[in-house]
Design a protein around this nucleic acid. Structure first.
Lengths: 193, 193
DNA sequence: TTTATTTATTAAACTAGTTTAATGTTTTGA
DNA sequence: TCAAAACATTAAACTAGTTTAATAAATAAA
């Protein structure tokens, strides 16, 4: 059950078999059917999750009712609201399954236990947070400098497997444009070819 | 010389006087005159810095020659290109002093020494990276959902002391708009009052 | 299988933000 | 202290992206 998780940890740091086992034993599996929520706005996020099956979206709803997608998570990705989780304040985010999904969950308490007792875990999460931060910095620069059209093209090139599983509405909410405009972009690209 | 730095560390984690002293001794002071660079595109970023005086901007130049500002750093802020620093690949960023500045620098080697020998330092940087990541997530959502006008207003409210030290050109590059449009926004706001 | 719901597309009017260029103001530096 | 450079503002034409609404196509539900 935790095979994918072990593989994922090994990608970031080298951890002894023993420590890996101990750490993984702190997770429990949760099944999340399509359209249900792992987290809702207003709740305090008390977990960190590792997706082993399915697809989630992590999004915000602004005061005008529009949704902005912070990121998607498929197999092998981690999900949490790091803001709510670390500060223990109510979340501004929703985490929703877009497909029937399976996720390995570790509670805040158990994660703190791991930090205190498995010295390498601190490094694991430092390294992972750094990597996601770098990715977000790049996305920030892209959003500041590139047109919606090139952001869309780059998104489809970078995550082809993800694009097939997403509606254009979801992709538009990630790119920060309307689905109507995304439709125009897609038409323009199709004509070019 | 490292008083500000010690104070900053204490804000994030509790570290013994001895460990604090050891860690701070790894930094050396650098003076960066206005308009000179701490890092240029193409260089590998081999340091992490803590600003004790002055003002920096961390920015990217896109292929059309436009500048996007990732963040500013004044006294008490950390600066590095975390991407280049961790992956040891050439940077896509410039770090430039906008005022005569002073910065405490720790080299990659010494930082690794600290990770290996001062167990709490791993936590320090995990916590700091988490906090900057949360801030960037919030900015990402704002950029996806808010108009330039409200982003400008919120920026001036959040960083009033910074706004006074920045030209409108710099603020516009941070907000992701042209300085001409920022001028329009400022006029509109002034008329309202 | 039929109906209801969600999704994608198109069009047309609109608005937020850009571009270019000109003008006055402030800052910098020799 | 004077000239040059950088900065802020304004105007006017333009373009990227939105809004609303209608229609067709695909999916889900009963």
């Amino acid at each position: 059950m935790t095979a994918l998780l072990k593989q994922n940890i090994a990608k970031h740091i080298s951890l002894s078999a023993n420590e890996t086992e101990q750490f993984c034993s702190l997770f429990e599996q949760k099944l999340i059917p399509k359209k249900s929520f792992l987290l809702r706005e207003g709740e305090i996020c008390k977990f960190e999750g590792f997706v082993t099956k399915g697809l989630f979206r992590v999004y915000h709803i602004d005061k005008n009712g529009f949704e902005q997608i912070l990121y998607f998570a498929i197999e092998n990705w981690w999900i949490t609201d790091i803001d709510s989780f670390t500060t223990e304040t109510p979340s501004h985010l929703f985490i929703e399954a877009l497909e029937d999904s399976e996720v390995l969950i570790i509670s805040k308490k158990d994660k703190e236990f791991a930090y205190a007792n498995l010295p390498q875990i601190e490094k694991l999460f430092r390294v992972m947070t750094q990597k996601t931060h770098v990715a977000l910095q790049r996305r920030m620069i892209d959003n500041l400098s590139k047109t919606a059209e090139s952001r869309y093209i780059e998104f489809t090139e970078k995550y082809p497997q993800l694009v097939q599983r997403l509606s254009n509405i979801q992709i538009a909410a990630y790119l920060g444009i309307t689905n109507v405009f995304l439709s125009n972009i897609r038409k323009k690209i199709a004509v070019k070819k």
